[in-house]
Design a protein around this nucleic acid. Structure first.
Ligand SMILES: [Mn+2]
Ligand SMILES: [Mn+2]
Ligand SMILES: [Mn+2]
Ligand SMILES: [Mn+2]
Lengths: 219, 219
DNA sequence: AATAATTTTTAGATAACTCTAAAAATATAT
DNA sequence: ATATATTTTTAGAGTTATCTAAAAATTATT
């Protein structure tokens, strides 16, 4: 009847994995994402199917039903709003919020999340640049592109990260690259595809990995 | 090794029950408080004893160890700080906060609760007038007394509630009785011990039950 | 002090979630 | 197409927390 914390985490994992492609989400992919065993996933997926959160046929992987998707989007909404709260109000750094948000996203209160949303002035994006769905589950579209796709000579604004690992975020901090930073692409090294950029009025060379994990909006 | 949510709830229940008297807390009392069965309590109490959160001897009830008490006080701290947050920042009424705080009190983050404390300006009391322990577990003392103990002619300030049920709190709201309200005791009816008070510049008669569940500070 | 009533503990089961190891199905390679 | 490799599912078992029913201990009553 009532949805458990574990079920919510599975639904969220299936949601995120489902966005990566068009095919059904495989048992192994879920197992990897959840750091659990494939046999455990099979058991849970059967239960989620019984509860109509996913469509499942043996050996064919799963996909979220509308009911399941609505739950996933609401969890994502809560996760990202809490991340904003932690950074904006409680002095957390953007690499410190994820684990706490993982817990807070499961708090159940009809009123809490909408009041939090209002308290934060209805933010559209979280500290990593990821969009926050509104009450009805609608995402604000923002056409962002990877910095690695920006041509030499173009100017752009940093709006998000693909990789939100602490290691990557700390690298960005150390080099004063933040959401909102203006970046001009000066040169792309043909050899290793590293990119020389102009940021904060100084030149910086970043690796392909970095340029490939930074989202920007071209002006 | 790690403490579970259920263990935390048992420890908190034992803490609250332990404050009511000097004797050990009985299995049945815990069962009633937790809305569970005595046999379940016995099982859990054994586990808590193994983990050194409580002292327990068969048939003799339990009491918290120092380790257990520290955990209980920290949960109380979190519960009450979250209640302040909900009322002060998210427009919750004082009768709406308890269930959400019951969930939020289990969020584990070294940084979160201390930042929240600072964000709220280190409040000493929650929306029901209950004291909030500081980081080190120390409670701010406030000598409050039940309104039913105040003599005729005396003036006092409402500082807390004994009963924090939604029904009682809504009654207080309806009669404009809030924390901080100035109250003068006009008369005590010998027959039913109802009390006539002067509050907000008008007279009001309240039952013994009400006067017995309102804490005041005499000026 | 013996009996009755109450409280507490044990015994045995169940539900949710997990695991390892083995079997079955599917996908890949020859 | 057949054999091989990989993926997925099943079978069986362990853990945590719960329950009912029965046994044991404690407390209250006569
Ligand atoms: Mn996150
Ligand atoms: Mn994020
Ligand atoms: Mn409360
Ligand atoms: Mn309270």
């Amino acid at each position: 009847m009532m949805i458990t914390l574990t079920e919510e985490n599975y639904i969220k994992a299936i949601y995120h994995l489902g966005k990566l492609g068009t095919a059904n989400v495989s048992t192994n992919a879920i197992a990897k994402e959840m750091e659990t065993k494939a046999s455990s996933v099979t058991d849970m997926v059967k239960k989620l199917s019984e509860k109509a959160y996913v469509d499942y046929k043996k050996y064919q992987g799963v996909s979220l039903t509308e009911k399941g998707k609505a739950i996933a989007v609401n969890i994502v909404r809560k996760h990202r709003l809490w991340e904003v709260f932690l950074v904006e109000k409680l002095n957390f750094l953007w690499d410190e919020v994820h684990d706490v948000a993982e817990q807070l996203e499961h708090i159940k209160s009809p009123k809490l999340i909408d009041e939090l949303d209002a308290f934060l002035n209805f933010p559209t994006h979280d500290p990593h640049g990821d969009p926050i769905p509104d009450k009805d589950g609608n995402f604000s579209k923002l056409d962002k592109v990877k910095l690695s796709k920006v041509a030499v000579g173009e100017t752009c604004t940093c709006v998000g990260v693909e990789d939100s690992s602490s290691a990557f975020l700390k690298y960005l901090d150390n080099h004063k690259i933040a959401l909102g930073s203006k970046i001009e692409v000066i040169a792309i090294e043909p050899f290793d595809e590293s990119v020389t950029i102009l940021i904060n009025a100084s030149k910086l060379n970043i690796s392909k990995h970095v340029s490939n994990n930074l989202f920007v909006r071209t002006n």
